[in-house]
Design a protein around this nucleic acid. Structure first.
Lengths: 336, 336
DNA sequence: CTGAAAGCGCTTACAG
DNA sequence: CTGAAAGCGCTTACAG
């Protein structure tokens, strides 16, 4: 790279100190009562030299980088892709840049990422926490690093977070299936102790328990690292071999997709043989011959709010904030 | 944030200079012949104090941030989401972190992003360039900032780039439709002078021109900022009202999706009334009742190679590299 | 109105 | 084997 032009270069050329140049370029010529003529000259030379301030130097000096660290499960997953996009746009509005990383739901990856981003002195974090990462989160608290959890959180830890009303979302979705006359409803969820998953399962279980002639619950828990195989086994058991259920609820986006592949593969008729409800929308579900009924999350709001809260936290308004966003059940053909 | 522990803190505690600490922590105790005992002690204290090096300070001193700036059109678009993911993973392997931004195909956004990232002293860029951004790219060349263009490039500028064999991909796809017996084939592309789009159109046009009883070409160019309306008009003209065509080729991912929505909306039968081919795969296309035949791009390779080339560029191996990756036509039901 | 100087936290030639 | 010192490019109290 060619040598960058620095404050000093401008100062030399104009014949003043770097202090003056810094004041003028930061719009403090009024407060510091810099001479009008000299200010004009500094601006002119800065422009001529195409001066770009070195943010790294500024960051070191100011102790703030105007950078947000974003850790999601997988940036290639559309849910997180959209989330990242809204976070990016909102962060930019506040003058922040975002550095991101994907944890793949792995604890060690998330720890490594957090470390890297801390070393890079991000001003704060927006984190989709992985299962078992409580210690990492505690560490952030101890070190007084501003952050907000998103999508999931740890009830036993006192942190800011923003999440969906997962319990009632899943409860409503299940009740909707019951109301439509389905009697034996299954759920496919991830095998995870994380609260969002537990709440989704609980909402389903309670809805099932509320019915008179009680069938189920039928719960299948899928391992993150073995999705396709586990889903196939689950659907085989629930639908094909043992015909236990007449309706199925997928607890996430990625489970819906994997499940649909399987359902297509075996030619299961939706909704005649099996009604379906998913969590999160996705273009894929629109083109399925029986478009999926699903729980919609306000991703845009989630992204924007997370930035707003984080920026407040960074600015020292250190209240702990809990936000629970409302879902919306989008009804289409997959439940008849 | 609580006070961070610095090199100096360790040096004070051990009773040595910061130089020694720096050497030991950077694994140069051999070269600098630091005493074994003192090295051990430094390591121990660093661990006790949970020392994390301040990358910002190191970056300022070394003049390198180990950071890559990634500019894509839209991180929420699955094509770019996957690309970002592969770039992220590969960059991490080389010890780089990635800062990203979405240009929305807008020139001014891309310029603003580039500026911000330059100020943040990224070591190099991976850029999906927007139409008309030649000046921005020239500016990078002038300033000797390492970068590689990806997905698209500017033939008249001497830069490194990595792209698909767009012409032959689109040519093969069209010839495939011809071979299947379709006579009147249309293409829906973006209205853009960017090379990847022009090549895709050219590949199609030449394939059409190669047939005996010449129908077409039927080309519709969609504006980035008016996709839905323009697509609807196009399909209306080509298929519904004037029945000009019996097969349609979508030149990108996002066009396929918007097009499919429209085709579903009007209940056009695929492939009986209209055969379809798309560019890029997508889960959506798998669940469509007549799964889309499409041109597959090696996204993983594209992402990985871009990082590899960029790192070489950053390391001063300043040859200009052009890489053209091979497509693959994935044949499914949408062409009968 | 303006400048000299310290300092953010590192790395690294240089001297001993 | 070890340390004092300069310097990366900024910002900012302080002194005049």
């Amino acid at each position: 790279m060619t040598k960058k032009v620095s404050l000093k270069d401008i100062a030399n050329k104009v014949g003043v100190s770097t202090a003056l140049v810094s004041y003028v370029l930061n719009g403090q010529e009024k407060e510091k009562r810099v001479g009008v003529e000299i200010a004009r000259k500094i601006l002119k030379v800065a422009k001529e030299l195409n001066y770009k301030p070195n943010q790294i130097a500024r960051s070191l000096r100011k102790g703030s980088t105007k950078t947000i660290g974003l850790i999601v499960a997988d940036i290639a997953n559309p849910f997180f892709g959209y989330l990242a996009r809204f976070i990016e746009d909102e962060a930019n509005k506040y003058g922040y840049t975002v550095i991101f990383g994907s944890s793949d739901e792995s604890n060690s990856k998330s720890a490594a990422l957090t470390d890297i981003l801390i070393n890079r002195q991000v001003d704060g974090f927006i984190i989709v926490p992985t299962e078992g990462s409580e210690d990492q989160i505690k560490n952030l608290i101890q070190r007084n690093i501003p952050f907000i959890l998103i999508d999931r959180f740890f009830p036993e830890l006192s942190t800011s977070y923003i999440t969906l009303d997962n319990y009632s979302a899943s409860n409503e979705a299940t009740r909707y299936l019951l109301k439509k006359g389905y009697k034996r409803i299954g759920i496919i969820a991830y095998k995870s102790k994380l609260i969002h998953m537990q709440e989704r399962i609980a909402g389903y279980v309670d809805a099932i328990a509320s019915q008179k002639n009680n069938y189920g619950p039928f719960i299948k828990e899928i391992r993150f690292d073995n999705v396709e195989q586990d889903i196939e086994n689950a659907i085989n058991d629930l639908v094909i071999k043992n015909k236990k259920i007449d309706a199925l609820f997928f607890a996430t986006n990625s489970l819906s997709i994997a499940g649909l592949y399987c359902i297509c593969k075996y030619g299961i008729k939706v909704p005649d043989e099996l009604a379906l409800v998913g969590f999160d929308g996705n273009e894929s579900f629109d083109f399925f011959y029986s478009p999926l009924t699903y729980v919609e999350q306000p991703i845009s709001e989630m992204g924007k709010e997370s930035v707003r809260v984080l920026v407040d936290l960074i600015d020292g308004k250190d209240k702990i904030i809990h936000i629970e966003l409302k879902h919306k059940l989008i009804i289409r053909k997959s439940c008849g």
